[in-house]
Structures are given as structure tokens and as C-alpha cells.
Design a protein around this nucleic acid. Structure first.
Length: 465
RNA sequence: GUGGGAGUAGUUCAGUUGGUUAGAACGUUGGAUUGUGGUUCCAAAGGUCGGGGGUUCGAAUCCCCUCUUCCACCCCA
């Protein structure tokens, strides 16, 4: 007892109440996915290192949890090679990488999209395209935990792969709107397009600085235009370009205003115009949906851009400031890295844990009393309990949640148990009741108590509930 | 990976310029005439003060290291 047990950092236990709420969340999300015809899949918690590495950029690779090989994992180490490398202290990163590959061949999944791509390639024969799937599973990241950031968390992914149609993007936005409407959260759906970003870079003469350009741009709402400009300049982007860009990026008007501004700015860029056209079409489709949430074009939305090629989607809570609670986009060639080129997909991922945190903070969860026991039989001893069992069986057969207290403790203890577990009805059958053939039914909220003949017990309880 | 705050009973926290057996509240357990909960009253249990090292006659308190956690950055759900 002098040593307290604990769980790894960034992980959490979920007691009954959080669990019921999480189930409510997952069920809501799942029911919407199913309503649009998406099919469930699951993939293993671990993937081979080959599948995962190199898919998330340099930063992402570092955040993958590696799994040590079983058994005598040290036998695979090439000591000669390592000794050679280790002599140079600058090599420490390389040494770690080399060593990892020698003692580990699998890792915990980092997201659901890459395993999905692997799944599609591996099962291409069984899949008919377009393939619409959803997947609700935990993922793991060796990130430093903080508010709204965990090392083990759930993602709820919906993707459609094998279709270029913008109707898919529109459908996903409708799904987002449905889910958050059902949950009662106020959100804004931000959209952008990778091609527009490329166009902005091109039209302002940035050349191939796209990555540096977007990484800084993504921080605009956080650090402001001055700091973004500074970062751009430090990356070698010319002041001239920045002056051209500032009014476009800082444009705060409506979507149509933004589009007309962009139309003029991007006219020299084919990619940019293509992206703009996509956004326009998407907005046209969405306008027919009558969404509850607002959809706004946000040019600062870049989202890592590891594999996104078209639409970029992100959802922010208007209730709580917590980073994005849902995000995704189109990736034209994700399966290409697994040897199946030319298949385009688009998908979004709901961050269940962050959504939970938001719901929690705004008291957005409905009362979930419908999960606990409704009727408790007190235990007056073995013989009396034997009488209770068939009666409890009848009550359950009527669909009422019912339990018998397992130990013949003092009645006070058993009532305390009922009280603490918010059980509304208690049935007492002691020696007296057993002889009389009548049960004492106590309604906990009022303390009122009535006697009911055994055959009428189920119907009486049904009346009370 | 970088920077800052915090670690004292199950939980939330007190703990005076270093000074005797480290406190409270809530919770837990037991009791207040035998088969009746929530309120009340009484009592008890529970801490090598995150861990290790150092300074000191003496450390929860001062210094160093480490772990954990929270916050910010990087990045992200």
C-alpha cells in the first residue's frame, strides 16, 4: 500500500458515468455515419513500422509509439554498426533511429487514415469503389500531454475513397453539421483548399516555399499578421510578396466577398483558380442543405498538409476554446505509398475526447439515468432471497433493470446502497412479507411504502416507473 | 523536444522567520435498543509531506537531481 498504482502519463481511466457519456457520444456519431451508408471497419492497434513511418512527416514520426520486439530483442542489435555511429556525438538521433529499427518492428497506430489506406490496398479485391467506411478506435501519440491533448484518444473517422466528386465533401460537411446539431454544440465549420494555398504562393511569387508559407500562415489567428510576416521574412519570403498577400489573407468579409477577392488575385494561377472553383461548387451544394452551423472560408487553414491535396475542413467549438474538434480533407493519392496509385479519397475525423471535454464544460450531456438499476431487492437471508429471484426475473422480463443485493447485510446498509446508486425503487421481502405473500415496495424519493401481492409486483412497479 | 507553475490523508487544501507526537473539511468505516436510506450527533481508520541526495543539532519548509502533473510553445484530435 505504500506504493500507489498509476497509469502511464496521458492516459485515463473512465468510470461508469464518463463511460455512459462516452457511449452516448459514440452512439450519436455512429448513428449519423450509418445514416449516410458508411460501413464499419476496424484495424489492429499496432501496425508494422513500415506502414507507419514516413507518413506523418519528421515531427509525426517522432510521436509514434514503438513496440519493443518480444523475447530476446537485444539479439538483433548490430553492435559493430552502432559502435561506429555512436563515436560521433552528433549522431545521437541517427543512433536512436538505427537502434529502434533493430529492436522494434511494430508500433501503435498514430491515426486511422494511414491504416485505412493500408486496409484499402490490402483488401482491394474485396472492396467495390467508392468505398465509404467509418472507424471508431483509439490512437496513440507520444506527445506531451496538456489540456485537450492525450496520449491515448479516440478518433471517429469517416472517409469515402475512390470518388472525385465534390458531393462527398459536401456530404461530410452535412454529416458534421448533423453530428454537432444532435449533440447540441455550437460550431463553425472552416474550409479551405490546398490548391488555393498553392495558388496564393504562386501568384505572390513565393516559388516553392509553400510549406514554410503555410506553416506560418496557419498561426495567423494566434500570433497576428506582424509575427506571421516576421516568420515569412525569416524563411526568405520577400516583403513584396507579403505586401501583396496581406489584404487577401486579412480579408474578413463574407464568403462571396472572399471569393471575388481571390478571383482577381489568383487569375494568373491555374491551380489557384481550380481550387477556387472547387470551393465555389462546394458552397453551392452546401447552400441547399440548410445547415445549422455556419461554413466559412478560412485561408489560414493549412492543417499540416502532409497528404491533403484539395479541400481542407476543420471544426472549431464556439463554446469552448480547445483547438479543433474535427478535421479532415481530400487526399488524392494516399494509397499510392502502398502501391496503389490514383485513388482519391476524402474524409474527416471527429476528436471524441475533445468533444467530450466541450460537452462536459457546457453541461451538454443529457441526464443518463436510464442506465442504472431501477429496482433493488433487499436480501433478508438465503430463504427470502430465493423467493426474490423468480420475482426479479419477471421484472427483468418486463424490461425493467433489476438486481438482488448479494449479501444479507443490515437493512440500513442495503438502503444506503440503493440511495448512493440512485435506485428509485426498493423491494423488501423479509420473513413477514414472505409468509403474507406480499412484498413491501418502497419508493426512495418519497419514502412512501406500499404492500403488493407477489403476482401484481411487476405491474405495480411498472405503474410507479 | 523547449520554457514556466505545482506535488502534504481517498479528494480539495492549511502548515507562520527551518523547531516537539503534520492539521481541517469532505469522503470512507463503525456506532446512536433488535427489519428502513438521504438530515443530525459521536468515534475510528488513513500521510516515511512524490522519490533520491545534500546543508543543518534539527527539513513538509533551504539547495541539487529525478519522476509525475498542469500551463505555454512546436505540432495536433
Amino acid at each position: 500500500m505504500n506504493q500507489k498504482p498509476s497509469i502511464p502519463k496521458g492516459t485515463r481511466d473512465f468510470g461508469p458515468v464518463p463511460m455512459m457519456r462516452r457511449n452516448y457520444l459514440f452512439n450519436t456519431i455512429r448513428s449519423v455515419f450509418q445514416l449516410y451508408g458508411y460501413l464499419p471497419i476496424e484495424t489492429p492497434a499496432m501496425e508494422t513500422l513500415d506502414t507507419l513511418m514516413g507518413k506523418y512527416g519528421e515531427e509525426g514520426d517522432k510521436l509514434v509509439f514503438n513496440i519493443l520486439n518480444s523475447g530476446d530483442f537485444a539479439s538483433g542489435i548490430n553492435t559493430e554498426l552502432l559502435q561506429k555511429l555512436i563515436q560521433d556525438p552528433d549522431n545521437s538521433a541517427l543512433v536512436s533511429r538505427t537502434m529502434t529499427s533493430q529492436v522494434s518492428e511494430k508500433a501503435l497506430r498514430y491515426d486511422l487514415t494511414v491504416p485505412f489506406a493500408r486496409f484499402v490496398v490490402q483488401h482491394r479485391d474485396e472492396i467495390s469503389f467508392p468505398f465509404k467506411r467509418y472507424q471508431i478506435q483509439p490512437v496513440w501519440r507520444a506527445d506531451r500531454p496538456q489540456k485537450g491533448r492525450y496520449r491515448e484518444f479516440y478518433q471517429c473517422d469517416v472517409d469515402v475513397i475512390g470518388s472525385d466528386s465534390l458531393l462527398n465533401e459536401a456530404e461530410l460537411i452535412k454529416i458534421i453539421d448533423d453530428v454537432f446539431s444532435k449533440l447540441g454544440l455550437n460550431i463553425v465549420i472552416k474550409i479551405n483548399n490546398r490548391k488555393i494555398l498553392a495558388g496564393l504562393a504562386e501568384a505572390s511569387g513565393l516559388g516553392d516555399n509553400l510549406t514554410d508559407f503555410t506553416v506560418a500562415l496557419d498561426k495567423l489567428d494566434k500570433i497576428g499578421i506582424e509575427h506571421v510576416s516576421k516568420e515569412w521574412i525569416s524563411k526568405g519570403i520577400s516583403g513584396e510578396s507579403i505586401i501583396k498577400l496581406t489584404p487577401i489573407i486579412g480579408h474578413m468579409g463574407s464568403n462571396t466577398d472572399k471569393i471575388s477577392g481571390l478571383k482577381d488575385f489568383l487569375k494568373s494561377s491555374t491551380a489557384g483558380m481550380k481550387g477556387l472553383e472547387e470551393v465555389e461548387t462546394l458552397l453551392t451544394i452546401i447552400n441547399r442543405f440548410n445547415l445549422n452551423s455556419s461554413v466559412e472560408i478560412d485561408l489560414t487553414l493549412a492543417r499540416g498538409l502532409n497528404y491533403y491535396t484539395g479541400a481542407i475542413i476543420e471544426v472549431k467549438s464556439l463554446d469552448i476554446h480547445i483547438g479543433s474538434i474535427c478535421g479532415g480533407g481530400r487526399y488524392d493519392d494516399l494509397t499510392g505509398i502502398f502501391g496503389m496509385p490514383g485513388v482519391s479519397g476524402v474524409g474527416v475525423s471527429f476528436g471524441a475526447d475533445r468533444i467530450y471535454d466541450v460537452m462536459e464544460q457546457i453541461n451538454g450531456f443529457p441526464a443518463l439515468a436510464q442506465s442504472g438499476t431501477q429496482v433493488l431487492f433487499l436480501n433478508f437471508g438465503f430463504d427470502e432471497a430465493t423467493v426474490c429471484q423468480p420475482l426479479a426475473g419477471q421484472i427483468r422480463a418486463a424490461g425493467i433493470r433489476c438486481e438482488l443485493y448479494p449479501d444479507p447485510l443490515k437493512i440500513k446498509k442495503q438502503l444506503q446502497y440503493a440511495d448512493q446508486n440512485h435506485i428509485p425503487i426498493v423491494v423488501m421481502i423479509g420473513e413477514t412479507e414472505r409468509n403474507a405473500g406480499k412484498a413491501a415496495v418502497k419508493i426512495m424519493s418519497s419514502g412512501e411504502q406500499i404492500n403488493v401481492a407477489f403476482p401484481d409486483l411487476t405491474s405495480e412497479i411498472r405503474k410507479i416507473i
